[in-house]
């Protein structure tokens, strides 16, 4: 495993830890989109089904279990925890996320590496992950107060796929890996969606001001 891949995974893990920290310590999920979190549950559930069929490494298995358990528990907290669920910005989080699922699934049926259940589900998870942040970005834009933990959560979540892009370049150049257009293009789209957010995040960080996105 190269350094970009490891950094990407750690950033991904860090983003989830930041979100859990917010939920546990502040007992709040204000500014967090349940729609995006539900999409992540679907992304991880469809991508990591192979933990039951294929073994890669201890690291791989543990990380997959961590992502599955944490994504399910975040949704549980937001929906059912008696304090946390009252802080959910239900009225602002109106993105119709179901509308993302069907096109991604149809695209996965049409464009995939191999027409098998495992490959189609894997491909679907890549397409869906690329756009899963959209409800969260819309909610952030509507939020007047973005607290630090929420801002950092989205930043780390965006940085993770950006680091994967470097990992793929490295693997292609140094390890002579095959051309893998499906994850590459999905990852590029995913990272590009954060461009605007990154710009304002870094700007506010430099000026030491509170993060606010223009409406």
């Amino acid at each position: 495993m190269n350094v970009f891949r490891l950094a990407g995974d750690m950033t991904h893990l860090l983003s989830i830890m930041v979100l859990l920290l917010k939920i546990h310590s502040m007992k709040s999920c204000a500014g967090i989109s349940l729609k995006t979190q539900e999409l992540y549950v679907l992304v991880f559930a469809t991508r990591y089904l192979d933990i039951f069929t294929t073994y890669f490494s201890f690291y791989n298995t543990v990380m997959k279990i961590v992502f599955l358990v944490t994504s399910f528990s975040i949704v549980w907290y937001m929906r059912h925890h008696k304090v946390v669920r009252q802080t959910y910005d239900r009225d602002q989080d109106t993105f119709r996320h179901h509308l993302l699922v069907i096109p991604c699934f149809l695209l996965a049926l049409l464009i995939n590496h191999r027409f098998t259940v495992r490959e189609v589900l894997w491909t679907f998870s890549l397409y869906l992950e690329a756009v899963a942040i959209l409800p969260q970005l819309v909610l952030l834009q509507r939020s007047r107060n973005i607290d630090n933990l929420t801002g950092n959560y989205v930043f780390f979540l965006g940085a993770y796929r950006g680091l994967y892009l470097f990992n793929w370049i490295y693997r292609y150049m140094a390890e002579k890996s095959q051309l893998r257009w499906i994850p590459w293009i999905s990852g590029l789209v995913q990272t590009a969606l954060y461009a605007d957010f990154f710009y304002y995040y870094i700007k506010s960080w430099k000026k030491r001001e509170k993060l606010q996105l223009p409406a």
């Binding site: 891949r5 192979d50 890669f56 791989n60 997959k64 590496h113 894997w122 994967y164 990992n167 095959q178």
Partner: peptide
């Protein structure tokens, strides 16, 4: 198996 190359990623 070639398919497994990309499935080792998260």
């Amino acid at each position: 198996e070639e398919d497994n190359e990309e499935h080792d990623e998260l």
